[in-house]
């Protein structure tokens, strides 16, 4: 039995956090020299030598202009793409060694995604959309609905469970999407421009919800170009031309002092 699993088990028996995830001191994300170069011709380096960690319970914003490598960062962190260099550990698991099947399983279970376009299925009710999150975990339909209802109540949509997305407001849709991301009790919520399709006041309520979830212990990474959104985070990482830099470096540059490096204390 691996050390990680034993530790997880101990953590679980010792007590989980408010969202039911194990409390361990392993960083949720650890990027060590992660880079991605698309093979050419001509080869394009979308992200180079990225070093950073996201600790459990952190609320991190990744900002940068379009084309800076934000999407690449999201795809790598979200296990949607494989880095060409470096090591990525998610919950202490080196994902480089994993097969595609294992990466998919890990993605489904430990990561929650929130998108700018919500990506709700238009012909399914809010409840059915949220229940979709456990479709590929062999959870029975009844249990899926129960978990989905709980998640919807968690985001304050207990009264709109049977509404179709087309009848929901933008803010409500995004909250349904957040509920869907929460169902599997992920280690990390990855939000890609979560307020990009919303007006300012609605965006505020969605960010309030994310902040509330974070204060309940959920680790959140928001990718955005909106500085108001980024301002809600504990820590802001900037990407420019494929390089990650901390605008609030916290000092502990142990492994590579010269590199722009972000680490939460």
């Amino acid at each position: 039995m691996s050390l990680l699993r034993r530790r997880n088990r101990q953590a679980r028996s010792a007590g989980d956090d408010a969202l039911g995830r194990p409390m361990t001191d392993t960083p949720v994300i650890r990027f060590d020299g992660v880079g991605l170069t698309y093979p050419g011709p001509p080869p394009v380096t979308a992200l180079r030598d990225c070093r950073m960690t996201v600790e459990r319970g952190e609320f991190v914003a990744v900002v940068g202009p379009s084309g800076s490598g934000k999407s690449t960062f999201l795809n790598l962190a979200g296990l949607l793409d494989r880095p060409t260099t470096g090591t990525y550990e998610l919950d202490g698991i080196d994902v480089r060694s994993l097969s595609e099947t294992e990466r998919t399983a890990l993605r489904g279970r430990r990561l929650g995604f929130v998108f700018q376009a919500f990506h709700l299925l238009p012909y399914r009710t809010a409840l059915e959309n949220v229940a979709l999150a456990q479709l590929y975990s062999r959870v029975s339909a009844a249990d899926r609905r129960k978990a989905a209802a709980e998640a919807l109540r968690r985001v304050g949509l207990g009264h709109r469970m049977h509404a179709l997305p087309t009848t929901l407001s933008g803010g409500e849709r995004q909250r349904v999407a957040i509920a869907r991301a929460l169902v599997n009790r992920p280690s990390l919520l990855l939000c890609d421009e979560p307020t990009g399709s919303l007006d300012t006041s609605t965006a505020g309520t969605v960010m309030d919800l994310l902040a509330e979830l974070n204060s309940a212990g959920l680790t959140i990474v928001v990718i955005t170009h909106d500085l108001h959104v980024a301002g809600r985070a504990d820590r802001i990482l900037a990407i420019r031309d494929g390089r990650l830099s901390a605008d609030r470096p916290s000092g502990q540059a142990a492994s590579a002092p010269q590199e722009p490096h972000a680490h939460a204390g």
Partner: peptide
Amino acid sequence: EIGLRRTLGAR
């Protein structure tokens, strides 16, 4: 939708 299902763990 296919992309979404893949993020939800669909192979």
